[in-house]
Design a protein around this nucleic acid. Structure first.
Lengths: 207, 207
DNA sequence: GATAAACTGTACACACCTGTTCGAGTTAAC
DNA sequence: GTTAACTCGAACAGGTGTGTACAGTTTATC
């Protein structure tokens, strides 16, 4: 075997900014944690009342193993929600909000749609376990982005301004969730959803 | 004693087209059944996972008494949902759908809003207990009414017809539920909701 | 290949919800 | 005022979910 040259760069991640473990986590442990989080995200997005047992089984892991990585159900849910928030922020940060407000909103809706559809009922699971203000904080980031764009569009005379901005944000989110539900019901396909969401939302925001 | 003249007309309601009880229900029993149904409607509309205990307590009745009137949780939920459906059908049947489609839709939305806001998450409680087709049947009636009106408006060139009617119905319902949620969140008041719903929905349906 | 970390299934304690039974107390109806 | 219907609380059985403890086995790591 080639004596593994320069393995220093590939050193196992310390990954402990606070805990200060002197031993790196084992590879399979990391893999399992990842599988659990992924499974929890998928399962909870479909059924916010799913049990730990279902999540563990979906992740291909024993229930006890799951508890080895997460103190409680609440801890797991919090972790999943935090990840979803981070993923959401990251995806939305990449959206170009400049230029024509209507076009910008179309791009923002396209990105938001995918997130809404993927995370589905996860927000429900979160609000059942986490304190309310923690959940509102989760929605605040994306909402702020939308609100900013709407305000710019209203000032430019592109969007109607005869109703509260906050309501317009709520209506927009409602349409997104409605579309996700419609897809799950088989009423429309996931492919055509973005266009329908965009057309409907733009109509609702235009005088 | 005055030999109880002509009591035939004021006879206690037989109320048994099928069961065939030979004895009329006692007054307090009727009162309690009513209180339970009302409490269940209110509680389940707010929290579809509410326990029988909560419902009984809200109704001011012992848990055992509740089970004396309803075989199981499922029976109670079914009864509540059936009542809501009947109430909905009745209220919507009174709406005048003739004349200008936009005006007619405004009237229909006004009526639907109150029902949506009152019954809230009751549909969730129903779909957890009742077979899916029974739930879809519940939504089908009102949806049919909306769809008919939309189709008439599309034919008249008043509503945009570049998207499926079913999607428009879904979007309309989504906006209604979104408004209800916004009221519960304190974002808007119940008073201003109808106007916002009407303006937003009409905008969404207009090219 | 030795070691320690991690995984597994089983089993237990605890809590909550559902549905039922029982006996005793209330109350509407005749 | 008698009777039967109704209500009540307590208590039980069965089910499910959560979280913990234990002992044996696998497996990554050195």
């Amino acid at each position: 075997m080639a004596t593994t040259p320069t393995r220093t760069t590939a050193a196992p991640p310390r990954t402990s900014p606070d805990g200060g473990r002197d031993r790196a986590k084992r590879a399979d442990a990391v893999r399992n944690v990842e599988a659990i989080l992924a499974a929890a995200t998928r399962v909870l997005a479909a059924d916010p009342d799913a049990s730990i047992n279902e999540i563990a089984k979906t992740a291909g892991v024993g229930r006890v193993t799951l508890y080895g990585h997460f103190d409680s159900r609440a801890t797991l849910v919090r972790e999943v929600v935090d990840r979803a928030i981070a993923q959401t922020d990251e995806a939305l940060a990449e959206v170009d909000l400049s230029g024509d407000p209507r076009d910008a909103l179309g791009r923002l809706l396209e990105a938001t749609w995918h997130l809404t559809h993927r995370f589905g009922a996860l927000v429900v699971a979160g609000s059942q376990v986490l304190p309310p203000e923690e959940m509102s904080r989760a929605h605040e980031g994306p909402a702020q982005r939308v609100r900013g764009l709407l305000e710019r569009g209203r000032a430019a005379g592109e969007f109607r301004d005869d109703m509260p901005v906050d309501w317009q944000v709520s209506a927009l989110q409602a349409i997104l969730h409605g579309a996700s539900a419609a897809v799950h019901r088989g009423e429309i396909t996931a492919d055509e959803a973005p266009a329908l969401v965009r057309a409907t939302t733009l109509g609702a925001l235009t005088a």
